[in-house]
Design a binder for these strands. Structure first.
Lengths: 199, 199, 199, 199
DNA sequence: GATGAATGAGCGTTCATTCAT
DNA sequence: AATGAATGAACGCTCATTCAT
């Protein structure tokens, strides 16, 4: 998936200087916050000097934007692929929950956390840009939840449900321990049990 | 409730200079972020000069800590009072949900958002201090959820449920519109429907 | 001596608030430096608040000036009294050396150190004022040294000698240990051996 | 000598930005004191902006340390070279006196004054560092004075003598006028006459 | 593409001093 | 005399960004 998106030029090759920078930025922005992360920190992490950053990005904010953008693009494609495998409405919702949890708790976790916590540090333009990408992603969710509602698996308004779920799932970053006694699948089923009256 | 806590010296009088500063800080920290809010912004908001801030707080971080501390203290007491009125386990959970939503979406909303988003900007000492207060608050929640579990209203582990709920409820700050078509009570009932198998 | 000067209104009573302030200031200015000593430090040392300092002195610099002024006045009188007891030229020089060492290493040591190290922090007016007091003090020295020169006890120009001696004696504050193996009298005799060809 | 030390990387090239900064700092610290000299003063003196200082030194205190360090290193080497030319014990003491006077009253005079007057403004680490360099310098003095003592040129304990001399020589900065009627050599001979019973 | 010295605005904080009480 | 909140200028320092090399 990643390889395909890289070859299509949608996502930066993570082994390139720019790609490593984006990944390092995601980690640093999550760990220290965007404001507290200096361009020198960023540059040091990939072994260049701060002035050289500006050959790759026109300013610091564009690095933040790239972190967010690439995370959404990758996760949107990952979700699309997972949905293609799911048959029933319940399966689809479970697939989405698993994908979202994987994105939050797995490789793109740093970037997803940044997406939630550093939103205010984007400028107006970038917020609109990311919002556009987010819409595509959210449409996949809404389609699945509406289908579940029609199948009477969901009792409340799908819009409200999605929003409550968004919060519940994002928050896992603050407490879920990857190597604890509960694996990701079980966590997903727990979350599913809130959302749908299982058959 | 607030009046009582003020008279007991637990919470700063919101009409005093210090109290107005704490409230202005909550708003500014939420809107611009802690790092992006300057002490001059803070001072201007309450009509003093920047140097005068440091008569009330020894540094900027202590203002952040005060914002968080007073919000937790007030909401803990509010929750305790609400629980005293609730009779059944389901009533108790609903009361807690209503209280938490009110704290997030009402007068202390700015402070609660700051509590979630600016945690990293506290120093180690302050984090421990706030964590201590948070424990008291969370114990009220856990007691109610465990009771609901024993009454078979809850199917999953109460710890997991609390954490999923924490996320779902905090996130409302990002989408719920106070004057929209859904009032706070209805939102609370929607959230309750995720948590418990209503009788 | 001190009692007499206090009763004549020349020196502030060291048991009064103002007097204790001057003594505390001497100590703090020596230990931390004038610039690094805050008026709050000063006030705390005598148990008042910083604003109250300004009832005793119109500003911080006047405290420094008072420290220096009172030290010189006291030591000038002490020297005059000691000279009255000395008979020979050599005795007089030794008496002056002992007095100066006592002033530097004894009770007024802090103030004397401040006099040397914080001179630059006085304003122009105060420098002139202290210089005037210093002249009286220095005249006592020059008279004695000239007498010694005439008695062939001294080989070099008395002006030069006084200046070299001033440095040698002030510097003792940086190395002489009151409770070490050499007492003040022996130190004085060592210093005298530099200055005069003893009979 | 200076050229050699520069080429060995022991002393900063005085024509470089950093080197000019160190020299300007020595002058300003002597004239206004370390505390009263602002980083903006320092920067203005070498024609850069205040922020640029911190490319050369990590903080203001490191500038003070560099001023002191380079002065000691240069003067230690100068003294070593002068000692190599001196034959008799008396010659050696005279050579040291001349060197020390030259260092105090000549090009490194500002730095030497700073070394005496701003010692307290160094942090603990820097004090230890400079103390180490000072020890090397003082060993040259002590060796020469002990030799003079063995040759019966000196009557008092060499340690005491060195300390009295240190004070006498440092103090010259406060009164000696370069272009007055007494040249440096004569001043040195006057000082020598205090220290040794000339043959 | 990379360097690193320089920029310059802006930051949190300090502190002598004032003044109404 | 003493208080203590408030002042406001000044401080040391940071840091995203630029640009000649």
């Amino acid at each position: 998936m990643l390889k395909k998106l890289v070859s299509e030029g949608i996502i930066t090759d993570p082994s390139s200087a720019k790609g490593r920078l984006i990944q390092a930025a995601a980690r640093l922005f999550r760990d220290k916050g965007y404001e507290r992360t200096t361009v020198r920190d960023l540059a040091a992490e990939v072994g260049i000097l701060s002035g050289s950053l500006f050959h790759h990005f026109k300013n610091k904010e564009r690095i933040l934007r790239a972190v967010m953008e690439e995370a959404i693009l990758l996760n949107t494609e990952t979700m699309r692929a997972a949905l293609a495998q799911a048959l029933t409405p319940e399966d689809k919702v479970l697939a989405l929950i698993k994908c979202e949890l994987a994105s939050i708790l797995g490789d793109t976790g740093a970037a997803m956390t940044v997406l939630v916590f550093e939103w205010r540090s984007l400028n107006e333009d970038s917020q609109q840009h990311i919002l556009g990408l987010r819409d595509i992603y959210e449409t996949l969710w809404m389609d699945a939840l509406k289908e579940a509602k029609e199948a009477n698996l969901v009792v409340i308004d799908p819009f409200i449900l999605r929003r409550l779920l968004t919060g519940a799932l994002s928050w896992t970053v603050n407490w879920y321990e990857q190597d604890g006694k509960m694996d990701l699948d079980e966590l997903a089923r727990n979350a599913l049990s809130l959302a749908v009256k299982s058959s």
